[in-house]
Design a protein around this nucleic acid. Structure first.
Lengths: 153, 153
DNA sequence: CAATAATTGCAAGTCAGTTGCAAATACTAG
DNA sequence: CTAGTATTTGCAACTGACTTGCAATTATTG
């Protein structure tokens, strides 16, 4: 993820343990993969990376751990406009929400923080009397490099 | 969909035909279902409604027609925060983009238009040099009625 | 109305993720 | 530092949503 992550390593582990959850070898491995990810990973990529650190980790455990992190609001689930099938991508819940832009031609994902977005969320909470837990703003279109035409299909 | 739809009936048909696509009995049926929908429908709900009008319409045709409409930018695909599984919901592409709020407790979907949202899209196009084709802003949280506590789970 | 290219329906397949359950393991409490 | 117990894991089988291959049908055009 391009945006700076000012994070203590092991933060996810600490968060989960402080919530009274058991810290197994498998969870530690998966958390470290998620925590050190340089881009958005889907479940099977996370499995592959975890597998390198611990060859006997199972697919199911990855899914279960991701669900756990999601339920605790420690990771966010993304679609990235379903550019490559219906799978989901995961990223650590950031300090400040951001927007994901997906280029429909080259597939590049760009992140963008905006004061207008923060204000929009405030407006939603106030005007709609809606208590926001999670937001997902994804935008599909053409990035600077690809703007000259439609996608190759 | 709560927001007013100032639409000519048969508009989707007209749009597709003007793009040189063949108008089959099945397509007409599916289009009319999508066009007259009062709320967000998923593929199987659309199939069920289409089936009432034409009992020999197939599931596959519904999926193919929805993809067609999506490719032509005539409908938008929604996740509605995956409140009930991984299926997608569809709605006619509106004149003005709106936000979908999904209550994590009662499941109610609320739509909201906002000038801030329009401005945010403008900012993305300008500041990121990104040509927007489609946007999806979904918000999960607790609606006015449900705000007093966490979901029943 | 015949030609032809697009569309349909069926059956089978794919892909991502989930569930049931017995065996293994982490956190207690003593 | 163990024994007990509640959680977690791994396996295998399953599910749901959607897609693909292909022969038969059908909408448009010439």
């Amino acid at each position: 993820m391009p945006l700076p992550q000012t994070e203590t390593p092991g933060r996810l582990q600490a968060e989960l343990m402080s919530r009274g959850l058991r810290m197994t070898r498998q969870r530690r491995t998966i958390l470290s993969v998620v925590e050190t990810a340089k881009q958005h990973l889907d479940a099977s990529q996370i499995l592959r990376k975890a597998h390198k650190l611990d060859p006997q980790i199972d697919r199911v455990t990855v899914y279960r751990t991701l669900n756990l992190l999601k339920r605790h609001g420690l990771v966010d689930e993304l679609d990235l406009m379903h550019l490559q099938g219906e799978k989901h991508y995961y990223e650590r819940r950031p300090q400040r929400d951001h927007i994901h832009m997906a280029c429909l031609r080259c597939g590049k994902i760009t992140e963008f923080e905006s004061d207008l977005f923060d204000r929009l969320k405030g407006q939603i909470q106030r005007d709609c009397r809606f208590h926001i837990v999670v937001t997902r703003l994804e935008v599909g279109g053409y990035c600077g490099q690809c703007r000259t035409g439609p996608p190759p299909e």
